[in-house]
Design a protein around this nucleic acid. Structure first.
Length: 284
DNA sequence: GTGTTTGTTATCAA
DNA sequence: CTTGATAACAAACA
C-alpha cells in the first residue's frame, strides 16, 4: 500500500545511494513485471542520473534520455544492499538478513560497485518500465496535482473538488488524475483529521470544511514522510526496516477500536469499493 | 470454500 | 459526460 509518503521516503533514501550507479546486471524472475521485452539488455551499462517521484511512481532517470519507472502497487518493495552477500560488512560473513532475497523477489539490479537493488512483490501487481522522454511526459500528464507542490493551493483544491460535485469525497480524493499520491490510508486519515465523513457529497462541503481538509492533507503527508511512511502490511523502507507512522494512524486499520478522541468505536464501511474507516461521532 | 486486503485500468450500466 | 459498480490482475490470511 505504498502511497505518496512511502514512495517519497524511498525516493529520498534511494537518491542517496543510487545516483551515479551504473547497472551491471539485471536478473528477472517474473518477466510480466517488466517491459519492454529486452528490459535487462536495455538497462545494462545505464547510469542513474536522478531519483524522482510522480504520484506513487518512482522515476530513475538514466543516461540516453530514458527513465526507469517503478510502481509498487500494493505489495511492492525496493530493498537496497550496499554490498554483496558473504563479502564486506566488516569482513564477517553473515547469515540470512530480513532484507535478503525472498521467494517474492521479482527483479534484481546489480551495480558495478557490487551493490544490489531488489524489487520484491508478493502479489505481482507492481511494474517496472523503461520510458522514453515522451512516454514519461504522457505518464505525468495522466496524473493530477502533487499535493505537496506549491501549485496545490486552496483555490486549486476547491476547483479540483468541484470538478465532480456529485461524487463522494473519498472517490475524488483517491482519483489520481485529480490529486496525485493519496491512497486508502491517507484519505481516511485526512477525512478524520478534518472531521468530515468520507461519504459526503462534494457539493455538500462547506468552504470551511474544504479549508480544513486542504490543510490536514498537507500536514499528514508531511508528517508521514518525516516518519518514513506507514508499514501497515508489506511496505518497508529501502534498508528493509519499517516506517514509523502506524502509531499516528487514528482510523485506518482501527475498526471497532475506540476513537482516540471520543472513545466511540471506529466504524468500517465499503466506499468507492474500498475499506473505509471513520469515527461516527467525530466526523459529520 | 469465502471474504477481505488494495492501486489501477477496463468495462458495463443507468 | 457523470456516477457507480464490478472484474481483472495475484497471493495470502483468517
Amino acid at each position: 500500500m505504498p502511497e505518496l509518503p512511502e514512495v517519497e521516503t524511498l525516493r529520498r533514501e534511494l537518491a542517496k545511494v543510487l545516483i551515479g550507479q551504473v547497472i551491471k546486471i539485471v536478473k528477472i524472475f517474473w518477466p510480466k513485471s517488466v517491459s519492454p521485452k529486452n528490459f535487462a539488455a536495455r538497462l545494462k551499462g545505464a547510469k542513474i542520473l536522478g531519483v524522482n517521484r510522480r504520484a506513487k511512481i518512482l522515476l530513475l532517470d538514466l543516461t540516453n534520455d530514458r527513465t526507469l519507472a517503478i510502481h509498487l502497487k500494493m505489495t511492492g518493495q525496493l530493498v537496497y544492499h550496499p554490498l554483496p552477500f558473504g563479502e564486506g560488512r566488516g569482513g564477517v560473513i553473515i547469515g540470512s538478513h530480513p532484507e535478503d532475497p525472498t521467494k517474492y523477489t521479482r527483479t534484481i539490479f546489480n551495480f558495478t560497485d557490487g551493490s544490489y537493488l531488489y524489487f520484491n512483490d508478493l502479489r505481482k501487481f507492481g511494474w517496472l518500465k523503461i520510458l522514453s522522454a515522451d512516454h514519461k511526459k504522457i505518464l505525468s500528464e495522466r496524473h493530477g496535482v502533487e499535493p505537496l507542490s506549491p501549485k496545490f493551493n486552496f483555490k486549486t483544491f476547491k476547483t479540483i473538488l468541484n470538478r465532480y460535485p456529485n461524487r463522494r469525497l473519498k472517490q475524488t480524493l483517491l482519483d489520481q488524475t485529480l490529486i496525485a499520491g493519496l491512497g486508502n490510508i491517507y484519505v481516511d486519515e485526512s477525512c478524520f483529521a478534518s472531521r468530515i465523513r468520507p461519504n459526503r457529497r462534494i457539493k455538500s462541503l462547506a468552504t470551511l470544511e474544504i479549508k480544513k481538509l486542504y490543510l490536514v492533507i498537507k500536514r499528514i503527508l508531511k508528517l508521514a514522510i518525516a516518519k518514513g511512511g506507514t508499514s501497515a502490511r508489506d511496505y518497508v523502507r529501502s534498508d528493509g526496516s519499517n516506517g514509523n507512522f502506524v502509531p499516528y494512524l487514528k482510523v485506518y486499520g482501527r475498526a471497532k477500536q475506540p476513537c482516540k478522541i471520543c472513545k466511540t468505536p471506529i466504524m468500517k464501511i465499503k466506499l468507492a469499493g474500498r475499506g473505509t474507516h471513520f469515527c461516527p461521532q467525530c466526523q459529520k
